[in-house]
């Protein structure tokens, strides 16, 4: 009888220790797994901050964001009007200009052609007053929508926010 109790207690002890040990090994794997996640210096590139105060109407700058170029354009009233006029025209990839901007005067575009990934040329180079991709001749309008050429989709609008009146933050902060 006494021996049986002893056996049971040992079984429990071994079981509990095994579980505890396995949990420890599993926990020890975590730092190894986590070491693959983007490191602090990479995460710091998740967002790009842009001071937009020096931008004059009609002026455009290219800023790097996560290693890719982003166009930031302060649109003139004419550009805005032209973009809004486009809403009612026949578009290969229909989208309202109002849905592509947070402030009508500021257009933020991921400058990667949706055809084969070239970087389009600055504002005013294409038909419709917009951007021309030099590789295969895709024309994007003043809202970054595809109007002519082989590209299937509009230029992508990255996630962005305004930190204050003059500071644009492109991208979402991770972690």
């Amino acid at each position: 009888m006494a021996i049986e109790v002893e056996e049971n207690r040992r079984d429990f002890l071994i079981l509990a220790t095994s579980a505890f040990g396995v949990a420890g090994v599993a926990a020890a794997a975590w730092p190894f797994i986590r070491s693959w996640s983007p490191s602090a210096d990479v995460l710091a590139q998740a967002t790009s901050e842009v001071d937009i105060s020096p931008l004059q109407p009609g002026q455009m700058i290219t800023v790097p964001w996560q290693g890719k170029p982003v166009f930031v354009l302060r649109r003139t009233p004419e550009m805005i009007a032209s973009a809004q006029k486009g809403d009612s025209e026949s578009l290969p990839d229909p989208a309202k200009d109002a849905d592509r901007v947070k402030r009508p005067e500021l257009l933020v575009l991921l400058a990667v052609c949706t055809h084969l990934g070239c970087v389009p040329q600055p504002i005013g180079t294409g038909d419709y007053g917009g951007f021309l991709c030099p590789c295969h001749g895709s024309h994007y309008d003043t809202s970054g929508r595809i109007r002519k050429g082989p590209a299937p989709k509009n230029l992508e609008v990255p996630h962005y926010d305004f930190k204050d009146a003059n500071t644009l933050v492109i991208g979402k902060a991770l972690a």
């Binding site: 730092p31 190894f32 986590r34 070491s35 996640s37 490191s39 602090a40 210096d41 990479v42």
Partner: peptide
């Protein structure tokens, strides 16, 4: 400094 748990490794 930058790698997650890099200091530990």
């Amino acid at each position: 400094r930058d790698v997650n748990f890099g200091w530990l490794l």
